[in-house]
């Protein structure tokens, strides 16, 4: 794009650098001219200009819901942002199976669970169950992956013990509930226990969940993190490549 300065990027509405943002929020006061003005002032106070409150609706007796468009002058230096991203090749299940067989010469053992009090097995199931997710088969379907899905509400220590017992190559920890950052607390607890038990040394530790990204996972001590929309084959590819890297095998 002409005139695009990556050192100073801004939201794009219909013109480069117009800085237009759409927003919606609620104020705990009933709708009135005053409330609408309050919404506008609020946005101005946090630095927006050209504030346009497009609607004010009564959301219960004492609440007003607003949709607003406004401009903001802040720019971001895109070039200096550092976000570690997992770079893996895109390979099909068959390709992955073949590579495991050819280079690692044995099936990989992967164990996964949604740990702590979290009762949602939906994430771990999407990655591990035969059926998979979004047309991408789950790890159980891979010929060269022995996948063990322990389900939800599994204690961190139980998952670790299980992994030790089967000599897992990788452990998948899913965290779905994020209220009051319980997912972070629990992930930290997992890493602490993984360190104590020693599995951290030779097992690939992977964190997944709707509020997880690679950066967060790394900061907590995992080897990789996968956020929403991640597909089973991406994770299988990552495990394969990480395993090859660790065993210094070049393909």
């Amino acid at each position: 794009m002409e005139n695009l300065d990556l050192k100073n990027i801004k939201p794009y509405g219909d013109t480069l650098n117009d800085g237009i943002i759409q927003m919606s929020f609620t104020l705990p006061v009933p709708p009135s001219g005053k409330s609408k003005e309050a919404a506008k002032l609020y946005l101005e106070k946090i630095g927006y200009t050209n504030v346009y409150i497009t609607t004010m609706e009564k959301a219960g007796e004492s609440f007003s819901f607003f949709v607003a468009y406004a401009k903001h002058n802040t720019a971001i230096n895109f070039e200096e942002i550092d976000v570690p991203e997992i770079e893996v090749k895109i390979r099909s299940m068959k390709e992955i199976d073949n590579l495991i067989e050819k280079y690692l010469k044995r099936a990989l053992r992967v164990v996964g669970a949604c740990t702590g009090s979290d009762a949602h097995s939906v994430g771990i199931d999407a990655i591990m169950n035969m059926k998979g997710y979004s047309g991408d088969y789950g790890l159980e379907r891979y010929k060269q992956i022995d996948a063990y899905n322990l389900g939800a509400q599994v204690k961190n220590i139980d998952l670790i013990e299980y992994a030790k017992q089967i000599k897992a190559d990788a452990i998948l920890v899913s965290q779905v509930v994020t209220q009051k950052n319980i997912h972070i607390q629990n992930a930290k607890d997992f890493i602490k226990k993984a360190q104590e038990s020693g599995v951290i040394k030779d097992t690939i530790l992977i964190l997944g969940g709707p509020r997880v990204d690679h950066k967060l996972a790394l900061s907590l001590g995992f080897h990789a993190g996968f956020g929403p929309g991640s597909k089973p084959s991406t994770i299988a590819n990552y495990i394969l490549e990480e395993k090859l890297k660790r065993e210094s095998i070049e393909i």
Binding site: S24, F25, E57, A59, F65
Partner: peptide, 16 residues
């Protein structure tokens, strides 16, 4: 859905 437990206006929009 899938993001957080509903905020007040999430519910409002759903009802609308």
């Amino acid at each position: 859905e899938a993001l957080h437990t509903p905020l007040l206006h999430d519910r409002f929009l759903a009802l609308k």
